[in-house]
Write a protein that binds this DNA or RNA. Structure first.
Lengths: 208, 208
DNA sequence: ACTAAACGGTAACGAACATTACCGTTTAGT
DNA sequence: ACTAAACGGTAATGTTCGTTACCGTTTAGT
């Protein structure tokens, strides 16, 4: 790179983001232990010293990355007034689409593998990401219970079960790299079938 | 170690197992990339050369370990003649107990993180472990469908949903190290509530 | 008894890697 | 204009690690 020297005023955030972007992609491809700082620096067209100035060390860079990934969380809207099945199905589609993106799958798997080394990071990730979705969903179920449409079970339990059903075994296979990323059409079927099973159960009802 | 030289006839398998046991525990504690061959050798009271003779290299040792972990799979009995809810609950307890053991949780998380480096290993693990459980469960649902008690949905879909519901969000937290291993009492409640929700759904039925 | 195989222990080799240091350069702040 | 800060590039440092080699020892197989 020809460009060198102290960056201009407006460009401070720029190299910072470029660095995070490059590091992100490389961590996703190689995991934590199998990626060298030099590779990151070269890919981001940044000097090694800059990384250490901005993030302290490798763990700091990894942490910043996880945190940025969690911050990308946007609360999925749950329409409280729509029919419950429709509201849940719409939520399910959005949730499944996000959660099946290859980079989300990968970052999750990497964090799982390294969580004993970064226990605080695991907590941050969960509380800023999955936990907020669960709370949001539990609130939805709680309101639906007040209408009497659904059984009075702990709404947090319901939220956890719904999320877990949504992920399904296919999510495990995705994390193991045994399956391709689903497209929109597959996700829609996936969301509908799972939501119905969750709502109506398995038993054949005697009366419709 | 004082003991040295070519091992006696009956002791061949012994050091092999001792090696796998030690390696197993160390991999669980440290993950793949953060564990040195020398540490394994010392812990197993075995020379480095012996490891390389028996397993080729580090990846080979890790693979043998994963395979042994999968082979420990024992088909959980599903009583086809018992009432369905009872059969499923019994299965659920056993499944949850096994799947929440710390070493099983850890080996899974490590394999997830390293799966891009060991794609074949991920396949072997899944097919010898989870897949056999799923097939077994799908067969159970298929037979139950013939009795007409449950809706006619793809039994493999039902099996996947049941397993996935069983794991629940708590399983994710376990993998992230955010929760303690559940004891038998917790597992029983967990199994019962999940099974009931799976069978009867969320909707308040008009007629009991 | 003799050879080959397998072992434990130590050391060595070579590569990779996280981290730091140094140098010349460009911009910010005053 | 001058100093301090931040940069890119290269090199160095110190460590760790996977793997191999060598040596003396013990057992298997014949």
């Amino acid at each position: 790179m020809i460009r060198c020297g102290r960056p201009c005023k407006g460009e401070e955030q720029l190299s910072h983001d470029r660095l995070l972007d490059a590091a992100s992609q490389l961590f996703l491809e190689n995991g934590y232990g199998n990626l060298s700082m030099e590779t990151i620096a070269r890919s981001a067209r940044v000097s090694l010293r800059t990384i250490y100035n901005q993030f302290g060390d490798k763990a700091g860079l990894f942490g910043a990355l996880i945190r940025r990934c969690s911050d990308q969380f946007i609360e999925t809207l749950l329409d409280q007034d729509a029919p419950m099945e429709q509201a849940l199905t719409t939520f399910a589609k959005l949730f499944l689409y996000r959660v099946t993106r290859p980079d989300v799958i990968r970052i999750r798997a990497i964090l799982l593998g390294e969580s004993p080394r970064f226990p605080d990071l695991a907590i941050q990730f969960y509380e800023q990401g999955p936990k907020r979705t669960l709370d949001h969903l539990a609130d939805f179920f709680s309101r639906q219970q007040q209408t009497g449409y659904i059984r009075s079970v702990d709404p947090h339990f319901l939220a956890e079960q719904f999320i877990s059903s949504l992920r399904g075994e296919r999510f495990q296979r995705l994390q193991l790299g045994l399956e391709e990323t689903p497209d929109q059409a597959e996700i829609e079927i996936w969301a509908q079938e799972t939501t119905q099973l969750f709502l109506y159960g398995v038993i054949n009802k005697s009366t419709g």
